[in-house]
């Protein structure tokens, strides 16, 4: 695999806020990436800098091995339709599609027409007068039909209903299977897109907190629920990502995998084991806001928490 996007120590500071804080990443060719994180985590800023629509305060970005800024050879292979993308005054969707088709040699007109039909996009009205969902649909049609080497989707589903979102996901898989390319899908609807992703990057307040293959994340944590004492005993020495207590019942999300013998042991002590979805994992990992490196893999704070848990459990 060759990296087609390389980001090294990228920092973006605005007057009052830091949007990206020492971000380093490498993206491979031909994968679907999920760029996940809460609103304001820095997703759009990162994509803007990768497409030379915004500028780094410090650090370095390489796309296809080159600086993308004013680089026609690089930029021509990218497509980044923003969540609040602007279109020329009075342009109708078909006009915007025709214009986009000039820019992309691999433009797939058949797919564009099919999507217009499936999204029930009005073709005679200026884009400015479309609804939020229809505006999103216009962006999706352009980004998908462009078949650019690297396509960035910026929260592409805003305002779309469940049916339209499914149309998007289905066509994305279909067209990607037909013509594999690099896709970066920024989203905060993690559960909806989880299965589409091959690799997951999670940003939290401008920092990369997870950068891992989706398969590695799935099953990299588990949830146990049961009597506080039993749960605490099991959690000793393990990294606790999240802990919730309801009366005498404790639920903790633990990092790692649960072995068959663990399962038996837990079942005997009446503790239930449940899987953790990608969304739960991300939320759990993010739920320790003020402990420095909250999502760290070597997690001293988490161990402290596990010990506290034991103490609390023992006191009862």
């Amino acid at each position: 695999m060759t990296s087609i996007i390389e980001v090294k120590h990228l920092t973006k500071r605005y007057r009052t806020a830091t949007a990206l804080d020492d971000v380093s990443l490498a993206l491979d060719e031909g994968k679907i990436y999920g760029l996940l994180g809460r609103n304001g985590a820095g997703k759009t800023t990162l994509m803007s800098i990768l497409t030379a629509q915004n500028f780094a305060t410090s650090g370095r970005v390489r796309v296809f091995g080159e600086d993308p800024y004013e680089n026609a050879g690089v930029l021509g292979r990218l497509c980044f339709v923003r969540e609040n993308q602007k279109y020329p005054e009075r342009a109708t969707p078909p006009q915007a599609f025709r214009t986009a088709s000039y820019f992309y040699p691999n433009w797939n007109q058949r797919l564009a027409e099919r999507l217009v039909e499936e999204f029930q996009l009005p073709t005679d009205r200026p884009i400015q007068r479309l609804s939020r969902g229809q505006l999103s649909a216009v962006g999706i049609v352009i980004a998908l039909a462009a078949r650019a080497d690297v396509t960035f989707f910026d929260e592409p589903y805003l305002g779309l209903d469940a049916v339209a979102r499914q149309v998007f996901y289905d066509r994305l898989i279909e067209d990607y299977a037909e013509s594999p390319r690099t896709i970066v899908l920024s989203s905060h609807l993690i559960d909806e897109v989880a299965n589409l992703l091959e690799h997951v990057i999670v940003l939290d307040r401008g920092r990369v907190v997870i950068d891992a293959a989706a398969d590695d994340i799935r099953g990299s944590a588990f949830n146990i629920v049961g009597d506080a004492t039993a749960v605490a005993a099991f959690a000793v020495g393990k990294q606790v990502l999240r802990k919730q207590t309801l009366g005498n019942v404790t639920s903790v999300v633990l990092k790692g995998q649960v072995s068959e013998s663990d399962k038996v042991r837990l079942a005997r002590s009446g503790v239930e084991v449940a899987p953790v979805s990608l969304q739960q994992f991300i939320v759990s990992s993010a739920a320790q806001p003020d402990k420095g490196d909250a999502w760290g893999t070597d997690g001293p704070p988490a161990k402290v928490e596990a010990r506290q848990l034991v103490r609390n459990g023992g006191a009862r």
Binding site: I32, Y169, D170, I173, N195, L196, L197, E198, A214
Partner: peptide, 18 residues
């Protein structure tokens, strides 16, 4: 096929291929 599985289960084709 990989692509049939991907489309049917709505998952990444690379995952189906794996």
């Amino acid at each position: 096929s990989t692509n049939e599985l991907a489309a049917f289960y709505r998952i990444n084709p690379a995952t189906a291929a794996k």
